[in-house]
Computed example of a mutant assay.
Amino acid sequence: MTLSNQPERVSPAGVSGENSLSVDVCDADAVALQRYREDCAEAGFMPAQSPDWVSAWTRHAPHPSIIVRLCDGQAHLMSLALEVVEQGRFRIARFISNRHANGNFPALDLRVRDGLPETYLTKLRDGIRQARPEIDALVLERQLRQCNGQENPLLGWPHGDSPNVSLAVNLDGGFDAVLARSSGKRKRKQHRSQARKLEAAGKVERRLARSRAEAEEMLNAFFDMKAHRFSQMGIQDVFAPDAVKNAFRTLFGDAAETKETNFVLHGLEVAGKLRAVTGSSRIGDRLICEFSSIADDDLTDASPGRFLFYQNIEEACSEGLKIYDFSVGDEYYKRLWCDVETIQFDTFVPLTGKGRILAFGLSAAARAKHVINNDPRLWRVAKALRRRLGSAHG
């Protein structure tokens, strides 16, 4: 990171140096959310820190939410939308929506290209500590190192690799080029075979949610599919809480009634029933699959999920997008397409003495998970143990 010219690059005319820095930490009320939206008009960010996402989650989340704003004079530099939660005997601040937030990147003013000086981050940390002394640590996971040419300033804090890889597809050259790079002949043949199997059951239609009612229908189908799938795998259903469901209903319901939106739901309907659903966000030239699932029924063997992904990727290419992002998680169906791997990073910043203990433990746990996830033998053992534990508590 080059710091010598940084104050000039991030400060407006007539303002320079650290003495002009200020940190504002406030509850995410209507006034703060409106200011956050205005700041984001001249900032880069990823979907889970976008104004629409933040607004939907703060409306329904059971945890108090805060907006942290770093300014140079009157000029906005960076904001973080966080939720404050109890974690055992500790109180932490984390990205709003927790595990549903992936590829995180703060709302960063477009003038800030190469990160921020260490002294700016010290000011940010101390400002949060002074305003909210009850918070023991900042737990900021699954972050991108760069976003649309901007370096993530939080790389200036101690950090480590996230345990799980993020997978994506390079769409350069269009759909034919994508297929040429990923066993295209086989994919086309499989897609035609899947189409015949699905059409034998009835009318096949790929749907886009264009109203709140359609969004509700697709989300309800998705929640049911996911609950069944997680139960089979012995995994906690992270979509089960009402707060999570209602936040996504607000986010995608509002989006479905907006002409130009960054959040879309697609469903594959066969014989009048939804068999696969994807929820996606769009940022710049990137389409991100935030979640997906398939129905467990008589057509599961026809792979409706893979069929829908094929069409989603084909459409993304036709719209001139550059990346189709499957987000965090290493799955076989993603590997069939992906040629881009991204290792995100986690930041654990202690704010109190207790927080130092927590940050050390979280860092050690993340390193251990990274080792397990990257060792096929250990990962098989971990998945088997997870299923057994899930069955025991089921």
Rank of each mutant, 00 (worst) to 15 (best):
D296G: 03
G156S: 12
E257Y: 03
S182Y: 00
R181A: 14
G329S: 10
L82T: 08
A48T: 14
A93Q: 08
F105G: 11
C338N: 10
D346H: 03
N164C: 11
L77P: 05
P117G: 15
L265D: 01
L251K: 07
G361K: 12
W57C: 05
A256W: 03
N262R: 13
A201F: 01
S20V: 10
S211N: 08
E205D: 13
P350I: 03
P241I: 13
P12F: 11
G14Y: 06
A101R: 09
D325S: 07
C40H: 11
A247V: 05
V68M: 08
W379A: 06
L144P: 03
R145C: 10
F360V: 05
N5W: 06
T347Y: 02
H191P: 00
E199Y: 00
R388S: 08
L351E: 04
L385D: 02
Y36I: 10
F223H: 14
A13M: 06
P163A: 14
G355C: 07
L21F: 14
Y333P: 03
L171Q: 01
C289Q: 15
N5F: 10
R89L: 11
P64C: 07
K383E: 15
G73H: 05
V204C: 05
F175L: 00
P376N: 08
V25S: 05
S391T: 07
R132W: 09
E118I: 08
G88L: 02
I92Y: 05
R206C: 11
D176L: 01
F307Q: 05
E134V: 10
S363Y: 02
V238R: 07
Q232G: 15
Y120G: 00
G279V: 12
